[in-house]
Structures are given as structure tokens and as C-alpha cells.
Amino acid sequence: MRDRLDELGPDTEVVLVTFTTDDRAERYADAHRLPFPVLVDESRSVYRAYGLGRGSMARVWGVRAARRYVEILRRDGLAGLRRPTEDTLQLGGDFVVAPDGTIAYGFWGAGPDDRPTVDELIDAVGRTRS
């Protein structure tokens, strides 16, 4: 998304909402050079308002996650593993809010890697202008 912001067209904004602490969010935003606002929702009240709950252990810590950890172990050994400090079951999502304040598009992630493609989001943004 960061690399394709210009494809969203004029009069479009992007914000990222996270439930991590300010410090961690700032480090993340700096590391990834995010060019859009990062909003902090530690209480997750906005996550709940948008219907974003917690996933099941089986879904979040499933085969794909296990494969990823095996890859890390092979590459970096135990030193590569970091203990999660946040709620790893919290699910993410993506929304497009039209200029009239209504939801034009909503995607509720069902697992860690379940996100819409950037093309889907760009299409959804385009439809708010048609």
C-alpha cells in the first residue's frame, strides 16, 4: 500500500490503526517509513466498533504460522524467535470510507495473512468516485 499511494488518486487518505503502545508504533512507523498517520487504539474500542475481534488459536497459530517459525528457526536458530508481547489473536481488517462517511468496502481478516490485495483496495477507492 505504502508504495502505491499515488494510485489511490486525489482526495484520498490512508490511516493505519494499531493497538500497540506509542513507543512501539513509533518505531514501526519509522522502520517502515510510513507516510500516513498511525493512530493508537490501545483499548481496541475502535477495533470492536468495526467488528474486529480475536481469532481462534487454531486459525491464528495454524500450519502457516508453524511453517514460518520453522523457517525462522532454520535461518536464525533460537535467537530469531521473539516472545510476542501483544495479543497475537487480535484480527486486522481494511475499510474504505466514502466521502459521505459511509462504509464503501470492508474486509474482516480471518487470520494472520488474510488481507485484501492492494488492487482490491484501489478498486474500492475508485468506486467511491463513480
Binding site: 490511516v15 490503526v17 500497540t20 474504505v96 466521502p99 459521505d100
Partner: peptide
């Protein structure tokens, strides 16, 4: 709040399309 201590409100951005990305854990 954003990372600069300012309050960001969706209602202030009516008239523009807003993409809201909810992150999972960092």
C-alpha cells in the same frame, strides 16, 4: 491520538475517501 499527540477524527475528513487499515500485532 496519532504519534504526534494530535487527535485524529474520521468526522473531520468527510468529503474525502479514507482507507482505514487495522493492523494486527507488531
Amino acid at each position: 491520538p496519532d504519534l504526534h499527540g494530535r487527535t485524529w477524527e474520521l468526522g473531520d475528513h468527510l468529503g474525502r475517501t479514507v482507507v482505514v487499515v487495522f493492523h494486527r500485532h507488531i
